[in-house]
Design a binder for these strands. Structure first.
Lengths: 201, 201
DNA sequence: TATTGTTTTCAGAAGATTTTGAAAACAATG
DNA sequence: CATTGTTTTCAAAATCTTCTGAAAACAATA
C-alpha cells in the first residue's frame, strides 16, 4: 500500500483524503483515554468509522501497522462494546468488520458500557458501606453517613440520566435536543453571570 | 468481598466508622480511572471528602501509606482540578487540605477539566482536518466529509451541554433536575421498560 | 480425513504510568 | 544568616498496561 506521497495533495478524491484519514485516526486515538479504551482500539474504530468500509483483519493490520493479535483483540473489544459489527461476504472466508455509522448510537453504546462497568459497581459498594453503617441502628446520622447518602443520591441520579440517554433508539437524541433548547428557559442566558446570592461557597 | 469475620465494631462513633472510611476510599480509588485520575489521587480525595476534615500531608501519608512525594503530587493535582482547597491554621507552619463538600461542585470541576483537556483539543483537530479537506473547493461533500461534520456537530453539542452543566453555580443542578422531570414528557414512557441497574452480577 | 486459510490465545517483551525517597528549594523564626 | 520545619522536584525503581508473534484452535473444503 502506498505510503504518504511527497505531495500531500493528490488527484483523486480517495488520495486527497488519505492524509485526512490518518489525521482523524490519530486524533481519535489520542481521545481514547476519555472513553476508557486503549489507543489502538480507538484507532481501529477510527479507521472503520471514518472510511465507513467493511475491512478484514489484514486490512486493519496493514493500515495501522499492528500485530495480528492486537488487531484481533481490539476488534473483539469493539464488538463487545457494540460499536462495530461483523460482516460476511459471499465466497470469502475472511471476516469483515464495519463501524456503526450513527454517532449517537456509538455514544450510547459507550455510555451504557461505562456505566455498567464503573458506576454500577461503585453504587453496589456505596450501598454496602452505608447499610453496614446503618445496621448499628442507634446513631442514624453522622456526617459520614450524610456524605455517603449524598454520593449515593448523586450517582443514582446520574445513572438514571444515563439510562434515559442510552434508552430506546432515538430518545437520547430527542432528549439532548430538548435539553439544549429547554435549558435556556430553565437556566437563563448561560453567558450571563446571574447575580444569585451564593451559599457558603 | 469478605465480610468481617471477627467483630470490628468498636464503641465510639469514630471507631465504628473507621472501617467504612477505608471501604469508601477503596471504592472511590477504584473509580478513579473513570474520571481520568490515578488511584492514589482518587484515594487522597476520598479520604478528604469522606472525613470532611482538613488534613496535612503527614496525616494523608500515614493514613494511605504513601510516600511524601506521591502525597505532594496528588494534592497538587487535586488543587489544580479544584476539588480541594488549602487551609491555613494559626500558629501552625504546616499546610492543611480540605475537600470541597458539595458533590455537584466536585462533579462540575471534573467535567470542566476533562472537557478542557480532552474534548477541546479533539475539536481543534477535527476542525483543522475538515478545513483542509474543504479548501480543495471542488468537491464539497464526500462521505468522509459528512462523517467529519457529524462528529464535529456532535462534540460541539456535547461541549455546549457540558458548559451548561458546569456553568454558574447551581444551574447544573437545576438543569439536571429539570431534565429528570421533563424527560418523561419529552420521551414518553421510557421508564416503562424498567431500566434497573441492579442485575445479578 | 488431510489440507488450507483464518481467527484466537497468551507468555513474554516493550512501553507507559505511578511511586518512591532523598536532595533541593522554600519559608518562617531566632 | 543560620536553624529548623515543610514542601517540591525528579531520576530511578516498581508496577501496570499494551503489544507482539508464534502456536493452538477453529472452520471450510476436498
Amino acid at each position: 500500500m502506498g505510503a504518504t506521497p511527497d505531495n500531500t495533495d493528490a488527484g483523486t478524491p480517495d488520495d486527497r483524503h488519505e492524509h485526512d484519514v490518518e489525521r482523524f485516526i490519530e486524533a481519535w486515538g489520542r481521545m481514547g483515554s476519555v472513553w476508557g479504551i486503549s489507543r489502538t482500539m480507538a484507532e481501529v474504530h477510527a479507521l472503520l468509522y471514518i472510511t465507513g468500509e467493511a475491512m478484514c483483519t489484514d486490512d486493519i493490520m496493514a493500515h495501522l501497522e499492528i500485530s495480528r493479535g492486537n488487531a484481533s483483540m481490539s476488534l473483539r473489544a469493539l464488538l463487545d462494546w457494540g460499536v462495530i459489527a461483523r460482516v460476511h461476504r459471499r465466497g470469502d472466508r475472511k471476516e469483515y468488520f464495519q463501524a456503526e455509522q450513527d454517532i449517537w448510537s456509538i455514544f450510547r453504546a459507550i455510555v451504557r458500557e461505562r456505566v455498567k462497568r464503573e458506576v454500577d459497581p461503585l453504587l453496589v459498594s456505596l450501598h454496602e458501606i452505608r447499610d453496614r453503617t446503618r445496621e448499628h441502628g442507634d446513631k442514624p446520622e453522622t456526617d459520614i453517613d450524610r456524605r455517603l447518602d449524598q454520593m449515593i443520591v448523586f450517582f443514582e441520579d446520574a445513572t438514571r440520566l444515563a439510562d434515559r440517554f442510552t434508552g430506546p433508539s432515538g430518545s437520547g437524541l430527542k432528549l439532548a435536543a430538548s435539553l439544549l433548547n429547554a435549558s435556556d428557559k430553565v437556566v437563563g442566558r448561560v453567558g450571563g453571570r446571574s447575580s444569585k446570592r451564593k451559599g457558603t461557597g
